[in-house]
Amino acid sequence: MFKILKKEELGPGMILMEIEAPYVAKSVEPGQFVIVRVDEKGERIPLTIADFDREFGKITIVFQEIGKTTHLLNSKKEGESIVDVVGPLGNKTEIESFGKVVCIGGGIGVAPIFPIVRKLKSKGNEVISIVGYRSKSYVFWEEKMKRESSNLLIATNDGTYGEKGFVTDILKKVLSSNSDIRRVFTIGPVVMMKAVSDLTRDRKIKTIASLNSLMVCGMGMCGACRVMVGGETKFTCADGPDFDAHVVDFDSLAKRLAVYKEEEKVSFDNWKESEKV
């Protein structure tokens, strides 16, 4: 059992949890994730480790309430436990002294990009961070991000905070005023990562996307998470989750994410019914 040490609402349906998971905390590196199962009948879902404290043996996850499992997770209170937290899974993000880099987080994706930004900075990189949210009430970790970035640029879709528009609108400007960007890191919705990748491809700036395929095992034994990268089948959990965005087939990724739409609806409707009772 894994105890929830702290719980905090970061914005509408955006939850932060600190979880006691000493083994995971001990070896995690930025870019890695855990697979979580809330209770005995629960599904296994992947969540990126957004922060960690090796000394106190705890990790931080930040998640968006989407369907049954994320709602179920949010129904757990501080002090309660969840049955499984496996990890750290996946490969750590490759971080060196690149020079000037751009990190782009969209929505809930801001949380997992944070430890990457922090480590990039500690390796002496100049980090321009671009974060995008739906609206002002969704903005979180602004201070944290600002602290670790050389420059933090914020976009909201409705213009209620920062610049109006998408992260890619800001990225376009950043790319045209900086010719020395060595690498781009991006985590967020598939459409966003695809758009980012389209912008950097022509300029030949190596771009790393952290993919969010559906998963079951998280350790390379089921193939649920397979994606096409450079014409080859890769397992996101074992070969990734970071891949060269320029050769990822984002369209097939998006289609595979939608495979269980009907079942997810059934599951969620059941959940809402049971909540009413």
Partner: peptide, 17 residues
């Protein structure tokens, strides 16, 4: 694995589809 370990044959009582 979905069927045996995660008991997907009992969906939606169990969550794995």
């Amino acid at each position: 694995t979905r069927v045996n370990l995660m008991k997907a044959y009992k969906f939606p009582d169990y969550d794995t589809p």
